[in-house]
Structures are given as C-alpha cells and as structure tokens.
Amino acid sequence: MVDRWWAGAPRDEVLADAHLLAAVDEALIGSGVSAELVCTSVDRSAGVPRTGVALRLTGEPADPSATRSALSQTLGGPVVVLDEEAGQPDVVASAALQAARQGTAGRCVRFPGQQAVRGRLPVADLVSGTAIDELVGVGVEVAPDAVVDTLGFLRPQWSGGRLTLLVEQGAGGVLRPFEIESPHECCGGAGH
C-alpha cells in the first residue's frame, strides 16, 4: 500500500501535543482511517518559526475531500496531500510533509507501537516493539542491553530517514528520554 501522507499548518492554539492529536482524531471520525503517525516540524524559511504537522494515514479516507476540509477546520489552517498538490501549496504544511516523508525532520507525537511500551524496558524491545528505529545517546553510549525508563512519554524524531529517540543517562543506571513531558517551568511558565 502506498503511504497516505497528509500535512497541515495548525494555528498556534492547537500546537500543544494533546490539542494536536485531538484535532487530528476529530477530523478523521467517520473517515474509516486513522492517523498512525503524527509528527511536527518547524519551518524557519520565513524567519518566523512556523510549526507544521504531518500525518501518515492508515489508508485512503472514504471521502477524501470531506476529510480534508474537516482537518483543515480542526487544525485551523491549510492541509496538503502528498502528490496531489497543484498551484502553490502552503509552505509550512508542505515542508512538514516532505520532512516527515523523507525522514529528515519531525518530532513524533504519535507513532506505531507507542501505546504498547511503558515503564522500563530494554533498548532492543523498544526498537522491536515500536516504529522507533534507533536510540541515540546524548553524553552516553547506548548499549543494546541497556534499559530505558520511558517515563510514559516518548517523542522520537526523524533524522537521516530513521525514527530516532534521543536518550540520556538517568539516575539508577537506566537511560531516560532526553525530552520529558514536563520540564521545569520558570516563573510558573508566565514570565515570558
């Protein structure tokens, strides 16, 4: 089956992970397909960083044009579909689509196998049980038998065509994801 890649340029209000997934899932209700992989990437070509979202669908929606317009509505921005664009497609959405499809960039908020892994597990199990291709250590070598504490939050990124999870050394001899769900907020997040 040919991958069905769609992408959009969401408005700022839906950029948070949970909002983004909710917007995508809502638009796909009744379409007969779901988004098995959802990843964001930042387009800096215009100076102002703009975040786009790319989706890999499980198949062709029953009514593609209706689904597309529903997605555009929930994301609050234009949607592009791989290999279907004529004229001048949205820059941010197109960049997100190409980055994800080619695996050059993109931070995966959802990916196949995500729900199946939790708690602590060996690196090999994480790679075999999910779409993650590889774990890359920051400041640490990743041994194949090393154990990763997922902390219930994984955001692998596309890099060189591979879905890569950055990890670092945590306490107690286990690895931990480099990106965590709730980093420390300065000023209660209100300072800036």
Partner: peptide, 8 residues
Amino acid sequence: PPMDKVGD
C-alpha cells in the same frame, strides 16, 4: 566536565 545527569 561530563554532562550532568538529570536526577543524579
């Protein structure tokens, strides 16, 4: 100096 370990 090595990178400091989060939580350790």
